[in-house]
Amino acid sequence: MIRLVLASAAAIAAISSSAPAQRSIDGTYLDQGGYVQITVGPCGSARCGEITRIVRNKPGETNRDRHNDDPALRSRPIVGINILQNLRWSDGAWRGQVYNPEDGGTYRAVVRPARGGGLEVQGCVTLFCRTVNWSAAG
């Protein structure tokens, strides 16, 4: 019986030690291209990323959510929108949804810390994924 308990404890320790440790993604970032600033932090029991500032307007775009699928939301300001939603630590990454104001779509997201204090943000539809890197806002 003692051998079984010790073997079980060793197996649990081996599994636990092989799982990557949860890494914080809280902070402030600039999207790819440096157009908006996104602040990531707690929202309930998950993490969210909110657009907190427009650094510069993207050519042809406004400061409104004009591509949103919901016509009632197309006039809302971009600042204040949670583009990263319901991120929870699972299988070595933060997983949730990402909203793309450029096309109004919400996609499955995988978010990981990146070099230099940035974030790697991957948005996926079915099997097709696109990964972008956000730099740390200085």
Rank of each mutant, 00 (worst) to 15 (best):
P113I: 01
P59K: 09
G41Q: 08
S24R: 09
V110T: 14
R108H: 11
I78A: 08
R56W: 00
G116H: 11
G116V: 05
I83M: 12
I15L: 15
G116S: 08
T39W: 02
V132G: 10
V40T: 06
I51P: 06
I81P: 04
V121M: 08
G118N: 04
V98L: 03
G60N: 08
R112T: 10
N133G: 12
L4Q: 14
A9C: 14
I81E: 07
D70W: 03
R95E: 06
R88F: 04
R88Y: 03
A19G: 03
L127H: 10
R112S: 07
P113V: 00
S18H: 11
R66I: 13
S135M: 11
V36I: 15
Y35H: 13
S75W: 02
I38A: 04
N100F: 03
V40D: 00
T106H: 03
L127M: 15
N63M: 13
P77D: 12
G104T: 08
G116C: 02
N63R: 13
G138K: 15
A13E: 06
D31R: 03
C124N: 08
P77V: 00
V110H: 03
A10W: 10
T131L: 07
L30G: 07
R23A: 13
L6D: 07
G117W: 02
D91C: 07
N68C: 08
I12Q: 12
G80E: 07
G34P: 03
R47E: 09
N57H: 13
G138L: 12
W134P: 00
L87K: 05
S135Y: 07
D31V: 11
I78P: 03
R64Q: 14
V111L: 10
G96F: 04
A46V: 12
L30T: 10
A21H: 05
G92L: 00
V132P: 05
G92M: 00
G60L: 08
Q37H: 09
D70L: 01
R23W: 00
V111Q: 02
I25T: 05
W134C: 03
R56M: 05
A114H: 03
T28I: 09
T52K: 06
G96Y: 06
R88L: 12
P101W: 02
D91T: 09
